[in-house]
Design a protein around this nucleic acid. Structure first.
Lengths: 145, 145
DNA sequence: TAACTTGTAATCAGGTTAGATACAGGGGTA
DNA sequence: TACCCCTGTATCTAACCTGATTACAAGTTA
């Protein structure tokens, strides 16, 4: 089990589009950096577009950020690409036996904890922005030279 | 995507075994409360046993907790049933293009954040024990009467 | 018109999940 | 011993998700 790479690919896309903001970021170009095929990129940019994070137009090559990189948190990307539904990171076995004290209460007992855990995870993703990623990459690139 | 229900089933098993500690909790009995088949229960009790959380013996009906319920955190169950590997809750697209500044740095930039998010989730699971679940169920049961 | 792009649908192989069946081997009891 | 029930495993299946691939309609520009 693991969360779809759509999330990290989404981050990659937004970061690349911003870094290449003076150039043209076509789905083919982005796919070359991500190392996947352009269809997947278009599917994900479609989701990012629906979430208002990116601007793409049919027929016109190139994508641009719809907001400042400092305004896009990784949590926004995470939600945009729809990798995990609310309250559904953990799957819970359904129809436990209602004739058993554990069976009839376990879901109500455990769900709040699972939700809290999921929210804790999401909170961390809310503290980092695409701008942070860009700066981190810049630092790493500097270090190489 | 979601984390296998082995986790919540594991919690269910441990809770039920403790609540029924004066009785015999065979895999068949537990399966009746969880509402699944006994094979799955045996598979999971096997994992809980390997983690030292439960005692089961071949041929002998019934399982018992190997520790006090207050000593078993949900995090222990989570780790025991092996639903998520360390650092692998999020999958990362591999082989991004090394000729691109984003491609060659994105993994190193993003991984620490993903790890921190996963750890935040796990930390929450470390704060709740089977004892807490038992008490919560007791409260809920009282409220019914 | 021609060439290129985005958007989208459909298909495919690979992996995972939970359910089901089967059975070897341990353990208790008549 | 013979019998029965139990745990521990292995195997098979259907359902689902992921990512790769192909195909193509529709928008845009030259």
């Amino acid at each position: 089990m693991s969360i779809s790479s759509r999330f990290t690919v989404g981050i990659h896309i937004l970061t690349l589009v911003e870094l290449n903001k003076d150039g043209v970021s076509s789905s083919e170009y982005i796919a070359g950096s991500v190392n996947t095929n352009a269809t997947l990129i278009r599917k994900i940019t479609g989701m990012l577009k629906k979430a208002g994070l990116i601007e793409v137009k049919p027929g016109i090559a190139g994508a641009k950020l719809a907001m400042k990189p400092s305004e896009i948190a990784l949590l926004d990307v995470y939600k945009a690409v729809d990798v995990v539904q609310e309250q559904e990171l953990f799957s819970v076995h359904d129809n436990p036996n209602p004739d058993c004290p554990v069976g009839r209460n376990i879901q109500d007992s455990v769900l709040p904890i699972l939700s809290a855990a999921q929210l804790a995870l999401e909170k961390v993703l809310g503290t980092v922005t695409i701008e942070d990623i860009l700066q981190d990459i810049a630092v790493k690139e500097d270090r190489e030279n």
